[in-house]
Amino acid sequence: MLGSGIINGLIVTAKNFVGSYHDPKRMVTVEYPEQRTVLPENYRNFPFLISENATDPMGTLRCVACQICEKECPPQCIIIEKSKDKKPDASGKPQLYPAVFGIDTSVCMSCQICVEVCPFDAIKMDQVFEIAATDRFHDLFLTREKLAKPNSYYHQIHPTEAAEVDGRLNTERKAAEEKAKAAAAAKAAAAAAKSVPVAGVADPGPASPRPATPIQPASAPAAPATSPVPKPQDEPRSSPAGEGGPANPAS
């Protein structure tokens, strides 16, 4: 009958009207500043710098100012100046550190290429989205003081990924320590034996990259020493492991 469609439609909207008062499933609106939804773990935008220690963030930055991210950044929003001196890093080795590290978030497009190319797991993606500011030149340019956030924060926002990164770093450090120990032992033994040592194992410097662990994905850059890494054009980016995270097929 003519008009029955109109009546059906009116019934639908009437149900909406009544339902919106008692059925929370119908009402999807989140009143944002007061109510917030939990961000999904995989949500990420603007990068931040990881520091090992919350009490001394500037002293314990993982970043060694290798400037790979600066060169790789497509919109050129990262500015790094190397330090003149060296500071000991988490494992005690003397390293360069960024005297200036700035990210212009008005330019950044959150592509996380900087994260993918970082060989030291020093830069990771953050979950901030409320960076609105009144001065777009000053307030949106994040200096290293604003960028540095402790590792515990990283664990808080991306727990799975952070655990994986920490595990890898720990095995690396342990391997390096053991290597150093072994080298020292070998040195000592050699010194004791006065024999000629095998060349090339004595220096466990920063040039020793991470060991090729099985969880290391194939796409991760393996040669940080060659600084202007040509971008692999045919690199498959569909895998979430591109940034060095867990190669989880479920995600």
Partner: peptide
């Protein structure tokens, strides 16, 4: 109108 469309 908002309530008819499940809005606030």
């Amino acid at each position: 109108l908002a309530r008819l469309q499940n809005r606030l």
